[in-house]
Structure formats: structure tokens, C-alpha cells
Computed example of a mutant assay.
Amino acid sequence: MAEYGYFLACEEHGPAALVEQARMAEQAGFTSLWISDHFHPWHDAQGQSPFVWSVIGALSQVTSLPVETAVTCPTMRLHPAVTAQAAATAAVQTNGRFRLGVGSGEALNEHVLGDRWPQAAVRLEMLEEAVQVMRSLFTGEEVSHHGKYYTVENARLYTVPEEPVPIDVSGFGPAATELAGRIGDGFVTMSPDADAVERFRRGGGATKPAMGGLKVCWAQEREAAVATAHRLWANEQLPGELPQVLPTPRHFEQANELITRERVAQNVPCGPDAEAYVQAITAYVEAGFDAVYLSQIGPDQRGFFDFYRSEVLPRLPG
């Protein structure tokens, strides 16, 4: 049975707005939350980027919904030992309703401490070792680790949940998807790619959850929604590795000039037609995903939740 969650966008909203959206999501009938983890927004028009762990602490006090980072990079800006402590605390705060989504990151967020941005294969090696370190720390036992990329000495987490935090791995290409199958407790991606789900399952994912994310823009007028989606999230349409290697919001703004409104209109469900959203979400279910997370683009969050409560969620596959 598919589940439907809401995707909180830290790139676009401040802490108070994110907390209020979580309340509205639960009231509207969404059953879980994703929240992004960025140091920068993708570009300046999005305009925000609060520290995700502070926001998760606030979410734990206002909603009973499970929460997951989508996704955290535990390899450069945050050492895996520090990420493990943050995730363990989040799991305690949410009474075990926290999952740690991880990925190999983007230069946009991870180069800010002056680290060299490595090639994709190296980033995946770093991620695999980081997951090993974090799982060791989630036991609550003292850990010393001397690996290829990370050193941990006499580290112990004293505040840990009753069960280790599940770690779901993001994948946008074959190598990352296979890694998710091999080391992840679940799979995270952003397109209804049936081949990716199958690759994850064959690689060791078996019955573990596959979760997909989808940006939408509800509005009374479709053209206004397309304009909003193009202004705020044209970067979602950038091809290939560009989102992983561009280093600053300014570079994304330059790349976004190549993305037309027509391309956004073709790829992002926009406007007042409930059927367009039902079809887009159902594509994930038909591709084999166990959960789909929706993120409303733009400021009209209340209108989105009212619309989805009455017009969309009741029509989705169970």
C-alpha cells in the first residue's frame, strides 16, 4: 500500500514556515515528512536555508508524523560522527519516528569549508564509509575507526533511540542506486524511474522501501503556477551531473537561464487540475515506489493543502 508524505523545502522557507507546513500536512492527511538539508538554497530567488537539525527539533514538538532528511550529506560539511549524533537525537525527540536519508551531496553545499570536491566514484566511497561509521555509533557503544576517509577515536553516543536509526540512501544513477541496494535500509530518488527501483531491488533492496519525491505547483491559474515553478525551481530541470558540481547559487542562476517555461510546464504538475496531480503521483506507484513525497512550490501552502485534502489525496491509489 502506497503512502503519501509532504516534502518540506528548507531552500524556500524559514523555520517558522516549515513548522506550520508540517502542522498543515498532518491536518490534510499526509502521513510522513521529508525535509531537505542544505547550506545554500539552489539560487537566491528561493531565499532560505535554515539548519535542518534545529528545524527537526521544532517539528518533533508540533507533529506526530515521521520525519526524514531528504537528504543529508554526511561526508564533508558534516563529519559522519557529528551527523550520527544529530540523527540519534532527532530519533529520540521523535520517539523513534526519524529516518536518516543520506546522499553523496552537491558542491553547492559541501565545498563551503574549502574542501576539494571529489569525483562521483570517490564521493560514493566516502558515503559508504560514513554509513559504516554512523551505524557503529548508533549502537551506543564506544567506537574507534581508522578508515580511508574518516578517523573516529573513543566516540560514544549516550543519547540514542531504542532501535538504530534507519539509513536510506539516495540514488540518481546506476552506481548510487546499486549502493543504496547494498547498504541502505531504503532508497530515495526524485523521478518515477521503474528501472531504478528494479536495480535497487536486485542490488539488495528486496522488500526495503523505495521512496520518491515530486515538486508540484498548485494555483488557481495554471500559467501563474508555471511562472512560479519556473522562477523558483527551474534548477530541477538541469540535466546530468550539473546539480552536483555547480558550486554557488550564482552558477545555478546562470544555468537556469537555459531552462524555458515550456520545459517546466511539461515536467512539473501545475495549476488547478486535480487529474494532473493524480496521474503524476500514480506514475510513482506504478513504477514500484512504496511512498511518494509532494512539495508545493511557492507561498500558497494553505491553498495547496486544502486542495490536496479534498481533491487529490482521496483519489490516489491505496
Rank of each mutant, 00 (worst) to 15 (best):
F289T: 06
L258N: 14
A283H: 09
F289E: 01
P272K: 08
Y277D: 01
V278K: 11
A287V: 14
A287S: 12
I297G: 01
S295Y: 15
V264P: 04
C270L: 03
P272C: 09
A287W: 12
I297N: 04
L294Q: 02
A287Y: 11
A280N: 09
P272D: 12
Q279W: 07
P269M: 00
A274H: 09
P272H: 08
D273Q: 12
P299D: 13
G288T: 03
P299Y: 07
C270W: 05
A276S: 15
E257C: 14
E286Q: 07
D273C: 11
P269S: 11
A274G: 10
T260K: 01
P299E: 11
G298M: 01
I259R: 08
L294F: 07
A265S: 14
P272A: 09
E275A: 12
R263M: 13
V264Q: 01
A265C: 05
L294G: 01
I297C: 02
S295T: 15
A280V: 07
V285I: 12
E257P: 03
F289W: 07
V268F: 01
D273A: 14
D273E: 15
E286N: 10
E262R: 02
Y293L: 09
E275V: 06
Y284F: 15
G298D: 01
N267R: 13
E257N: 05
I259A: 04
P272Q: 10
V264Y: 04
P272Y: 08
G288I: 02
I281H: 03
C270P: 03
A276M: 08
A287F: 12
R263D: 14
P299H: 13
L258S: 15
P272G: 06
Q279E: 15
A276F: 05
E257V: 07
V268Q: 06
A287Q: 10
Y277A: 06
V278P: 02
Y277M: 05
V292T: 04
P269V: 00
V285D: 08
Y277Q: 03
N267H: 14
L294M: 12
E262C: 04
N267Y: 11
R263H: 14
A280W: 05
A274L: 06
Q266W: 05
V285Y: 01
V268I: 15
I259G: 02
E257H: 13
A265G: 11
G271R: 06
G298K: 03
E286F: 00
Q296E: 07
V292K: 05
A276N: 07
G288K: 09
L258P: 13
F289G: 04
R263F: 08
V292W: 08
